[in-house]
């Protein structure tokens, strides 16, 4: 190999490394963007034939990062995420539902430490630049290496790294879910959040009442797509008074799937077969006198594969 060819080879290797670094830099930038920026704006979400508009506020105060999502159409409702608590407020019904996260994680806890893991199952690359919500955005394409997960396109604000738009794509590159800020305003300080006094008198329902966050399930999902791991297992009383419902959550770092198992429920409530809503698919099946329901933002083949492989550990 002569010197010029060696130089060319080294240049290509260096360019390749630099490109990979760029991808990592953008993923890290996206990760940290939500931990350092205050903003508010209007977010549009499209799931299949359903479109909603939300007013989003995101702030960082002395207690940490908080976020609120307020529905602008239909029934008034607002989701407030603060520390490890997620509250959904229904003003017209004077109702507040409360649920808790298992860990007090940042918004992108799988990153950046799992970037290399993600690359085993996704091709991640930078694409062009486009304008979204009056901001210049860098496109990031995340394409799955198999048919068991969706692909993603992220549009990230070039200045801050904030996610401005996200397309979820199926294996035919068709958009199955889309989120987009139609306008976004960066703020110098945390926006005013909804005062707790405004909903203090509302009926409060704890969705996690009686929940065992560390439950060991006697159920097992025997077939998982590569990269999916059990990240959480819990049990709680069924809302329909049907004994306990076990939940096992599997994730590859981007996509997540929940497997729910509970005693055989009435035929009216039990899902048999598949159901879909935008990027989210569900599959239901009877196993050993129990109802198994699998739900996640993965293709239908994945929920079906997992659902059909659920077995009771003898």
């Amino acid at each position: 190999m002569n010197l010029s060819r060696l130089f060319l080879l080294l240049s290509l290797m260096f360019a390749s490394l630099t490109y990979a670094d760029d991808v990592d830099v953008w993923l890290e930038k996206m990760t940290t963007a939500m931990e350092v920026n205050n903003y508010q704006g209007t977010l549009i979400i499209r799931q299949a034939d359903k479109v909603d508009a939300l007013f989003v506020q995101h702030g960082i105060d002395k207690k940490g990062v908080w976020e609120s999502l307020e529905f602008l159409n239909g029934e008034s409702r607002k989701v407030i995420r603060k520390q490890d608590t997620v509250k959904t407020i229904f003003p017209e019904r004077e109702l507040v539902t409360i649920s808790h996260e298992i860990e007090q994680n940042p918004f992108h806890p799988q990153l950046p430490k799992n970037i290399s893991s993600l690359k085993q199952y996704y091709n991640i690359q930078l694409a062009g630049q486009q304008r979204v919500a009056r901001k210049n955005a860098q496109m990031l394409e995340i394409k799955p290496k198999d048919q068991f997960r969706y692909g993603f396109k992220f549009w990230l604000d070039i200045d801050t790294g904030l996610l401005l738009k996200c397309d979820v794509m199926d294996s035919n590159n068709k958009v199955v879910e889309q989120l987009m800020f139609s306008e976004l305003t960066l703020l110098n300080k945390s926006p005013e959040s909804m005062l707790e006094d405004e909903y203090k008198s509302f009926q409060s329902v704890d969705l996690d009442a009686g929940k065992n966050q560390q439950a060991t399930s006697v159920w097992q999902t025997q077939q998982l797509p590569d990269g999916f791991m059990l990240v959480r297992s819990s049990s709680k009383p069924s809302s329909s008074g049907n004994g306990e419902v076990h939940q096992m959550v599997y994730s590859d770092g981007i996509a997540s799937v929940s497997v729910f198992v509970e005693n055989q429920m009435s035929a009216q409530r039990a899902l048999q077969g598949v159901s879909k809503m935008g990027a989210v698919n569900a599959f239901g099946i009877h196993v050993n006198g129990h109802q198994v329901t699998v739900i996640g933002e993965v293709p239908v083949d994945t929920v079906r594969l997992m659902g059909q492989s659920v077995r009771h550990n003898q």
């Binding site: 992108h108 799988q110 989120l179 929940s258």
Partner: peptide, 18 residues
């Protein structure tokens, strides 16, 4: 499923919860 969500998708799961 989405209430205890923590993946790379950031706030998207919470939009789904809403």
């Amino acid at each position: 499923h989405y209430a205890g969500q923590s993946t790379v998708q950031g706030m998207i799961p919470y939009v789904r919860v809403a």
